[in-house]
């Protein structure tokens, strides 16, 4: 609230506040953001849950042999992720299918809902994506050690390389292993944030009458690109989860 008031003071000329859309603020007033406060982030997370329930539960409530439109979308999502888990992570990863499907559905729905004008994009916040990426990272690491014990460390010891370069490779492998959650989370949040910020910047240019048609066309174009990016980033997040899961299940290099 205070931020908007501050911006309101410096009116006149071009004003860009591309990052304002990401501000987390309490929905029902109140001072500060506590861990239990209902914020706009909470609202859009709840809407995400509702959208997923509408698609996956209400959409399939007919259990039709010949699917309705909603049901075929739900079945398509199911088949898409099932096949991805099976192909990328292997047949024994099927027991993690509900977990991976949850991640995919949450990310893709939150991304797409974030594209609704004036919406808040849950997945554009590092807090959210780091939690998602860390949950994958911890699952994979714990699973690897539980299933394979010390052998899981063989993931870092490239036995096919000459002995002399193995320590160096091991160092690189360890670094890249620990960089995984960072790149995993920053990629998603960064893509979401950048796209939304760019749209906002173009929207700022629309204030100048001479440029506004161009900026509106540019917004439309960016919006189409963002729809694609919203899906692709969810896909990439999910497929990388599958790849990491495969490492935990079959650590042999």
């Amino acid at each position: 609230m205070a931020t908007e008031a501050a911006h309101g003071g410096e009116e006149g000329g071009l004003v860009f506040h591309p990052m304002d859309q990401f501000i987390v603020k309490p929905l029902f007033g109140g001072e500060g953001v506590h861990w239990y406060t209902i914020t706009n982030a909470t609202l859009w997370m709840a809407l995400t849950v509702l959208a997923i329930v509408a698609l996956m539960v209400l959409g399939t409530s007919g259990r039709n042999r010949i699917p309705s439109r909603m049901q075929s979308v739900a079945e398509m999502a199911y088949g898409f992720i099932y096949k991805m888990v099976e192909d990328v992570a292997g047949k024994d990863a099927i027991r993690f299918f509900p977990y991976i499907f949850t991640l995919f559905m949450f990310i893709v729905t939150a991304n797409l809902l974030g594209l609704v004008p004036t919406a808040f994009t849950v997945t554009s916040h590092f807090a959210a994506t780091i939690l998602l990426a860390l949950s994958v990272f911890l699952t994979v690491t714990v699973l690897g050690f539980v299933l394979h014990g010390k052998q899981f460390l063989g993931l870092f010891w490239v036995s096919s390389a000459p002995l002399a370069v193995r320590p160096l490779l091991a160092l690189i492998e360890v670094i890249s292993y620990f960089v995984r959650p960072v790149s995993h989370s920053i990629r998603l949040a960064g893509n979401m944030m950048a796209g939304h910020a760019v749209i906002k910047v173009f929207a700022g240019f629309a204030a100048i009458a001479a440029v506004s048609p161009i900026s509106i066309v540019a917004i439309a174009g960016m919006y189409g690109l963002e729809l694609l990016v919203a899906f692709i980033q969810a896909y990439v997040f999910t497929i990388l989860t599958c790849v990491y899961l495969k490492d935990a299940l079959h650590p042999a290099h």
């Binding site: 991805m84 990629r187 990439v236 497929i239």
Partner: peptide
């Protein structure tokens, strides 16, 4: 799938 994994790593 390999294409997207490769793109994701390059993009990282």
């Amino acid at each position: 799938a390999t294409l997207f994994i490769g793109m994701a790593f390059a993009e990282a």
